[in-house]
Simulated assay, not measured.
Amino acid sequence: MLERLPEFLANNPILTGALIAVLALIIYAEFRRLTRKYRELAPTEAVRVMNQDDALVLDVREHNEVSGGRIGGAKHIPLGELKKRMQDIEAWKSSPVVVYCRSGNRSSMAANQLTAAGFEDVVNLSGGIQAWENAGMPLKKK
């Protein structure tokens, strides 16, 4: 059966290209995961980090998303403003910083920005505020 694989691949260039693209994306995603400089933690594990002295909880959602509730004590800096407002959080460079957004995607970008800026202990809340709510964790409403 494997002896017919080269023939199949040659006769199906679109499928072959799609296979190569999918494999490349998987390899890229795994490489990024293995080389990232921040931790991904579930809500219950992130609470342990948040309870440490001098930990910063950073909400990087947009202004209109925060009205639905946020994690108590969180500092709100939207992802688009993070680079220019980095000086607002300089004091936490050597402290734990837990970053979250709605689903965990934007906060992973923020975590990359923070580690690039020299923050030493950055944690991305895996699944974001949605995972936090699903875990039954409390939200502070304004």
Rank of each mutant, 00 (worst) to 15 (best):
M1G: 11
L2D: 13
L2H: 09
L2G: 15
L2I: 13
E3D: 14
R4E: 11
E7W: 03
N11K: 15
N11M: 10
L15Q: 15
T16Y: 07
G17C: 08
L19Y: 04
I20P: 00
A24K: 07
L25F: 15
I27C: 04
Y28P: 00
F31G: 00
F31R: 10
R33W: 12
L34A: 15
R36G: 02
Y38W: 09
E40I: 00
L41W: 00
L41Y: 01
L41D: 08
A46M: 03
A46V: 02
R48E: 12
M50D: 04
M50F: 04
N51F: 02
Q52E: 15
Q52W: 00
A55W: 03
V57C: 05
V57R: 08
L58R: 07
D59W: 09
D59M: 04
D59N: 07
R61V: 03
E62R: 14
N64T: 11
N64G: 02
E65A: 10
V66A: 04
V66Q: 04
V66I: 15
G69F: 13
G69H: 09
R70F: 09
I71E: 08
I71A: 08
G72H: 00
K75P: 04
K75Y: 10
K75T: 15
H76I: 11
L79C: 03
E81T: 11
K84R: 14
K84T: 09
D88F: 11
I89G: 13
K93W: 01
S94L: 09
S95F: 03
V98D: 01
V98C: 00
C101W: 14
C101Y: 12
R102W: 06
S103D: 08
R106P: 08
S107N: 07
M109N: 14
M109H: 14
A110F: 05
A110Q: 12
Q113N: 07
Q113A: 10
L114K: 04
T115S: 09
T115L: 06
T115M: 10
A116I: 00
A117W: 12
A117N: 12
G118R: 12
G118V: 06
E120T: 07
E120R: 09
D121M: 02
V122G: 01
V123Q: 01
L125K: 04
G127E: 05
G127A: 05
G128R: 08
G128S: 08
A131H: 04
A131M: 05
A131E: 03
A131L: 09
W132T: 02
W132P: 07
A135Q: 02
P138I: 08
